[in-house]
């Protein structure tokens, strides 16, 4: 009596098998998924971990054609906004001045170092307070300039000539942005008053 029933069912199952070939196409996401329990509603495609914030050291070809350098080179040492600061600071030698700014009641301190016309600022890592990262690098006067040769006092037109159209701009500043960091040129009228390399939290 139940002759067709199982063959229909079995055929349906085998059909799905026949359509498949051996390659395991699922991206291997390390979520153990034994018949432990029912899930709340998650998409059937294996949910991949959100890509962690990677600081790309290589300068990407931005809208400005010529590659913009988002990391500042101070006395031959590259400072990458968002990266760990300890080793780099050691190789930079003793700064002209330091300033410590502990947060209200807890460990984790921001540090301000000045090297001539350049100020370097660090911030405590979110998870590991003892670990510090570069927050920003400020070029405060005309004695220093960006790897591309722009310095405080240059005109907006000279900037655009070298860097191209900014990612975002207002009369007060022109910003060039990339993954996780940016270079900001602050303007008064047509001249640059300050240049800041700063990390961008998404």
């Amino acid at each position: 009596m139940n002759k067709k029933f199982t063959s229909v069912l079995a055929a349906a199952m085998l059909l799905t098998a026949l359509t498949a070939c051996g390659t395991a196409e699922d991206d291997s996401v390390a979520e153990p998924a034994e018949p432990a329990a029912a899930a709340t509603t998650t998409t059937t495609a294996a949910s991949t971990e959100a890509a962690a914030l990677e600081t790309t050291t290589a300068a990407e070809a931005e809208s400005a054609g010529a590659a913009i350098n988002y990391d500042y080179v101070l006395n031959g040492v590259t400072i990458v906004p968002g990266a760990e600061s300890e080793a780099v600071l050691a190789s930079l030698g003793t700064p002209d001045s330091t300033f410590e700014a502990p947060s209200c009641a807890f460990t984790g301190t921001s540090y301000y170092y000045t090297y001539g016309g350049v100020q370097v600022v660090t911030y405590p890592d979110e998870h590991d307070q003892s670990l510090n990262r570069f927050y920003e690098v400020d070029l405060m006067d005309a004695t220093v300039s960006t790897p591309e040769g722009i310095k405080v006092g240059d005109t907006y037109d000279a900037l655009v000539a070298k860097y191209g159209t900014p990612t975002q701009e207002t009369p007060a500043f022109a910003m060039y942005k990339t993954e996780g960091k940016a270079v900001q040129f602050f303007l008064e009228g047509n001249n640059i008053t300050q240049i800041v390399y700063v990390v961008q939290f998404n």
Partner: peptide, 28 residues
């Protein structure tokens, strides 16, 4: 999604381009 992906890879063997992989919120 699993079947379509496999069918796509099967079609891919013969040089065809696969279908769009459907996305479903699986009820608990």
């Amino acid at each position: 999604a699993f079947t379509v992906r496999n069918v796509n890879s099967l079609i891919g063997l013969f040089g065809g381009s696969g279908m769009k992989v459907p996305e479903f919120l699986l009820p608990m």
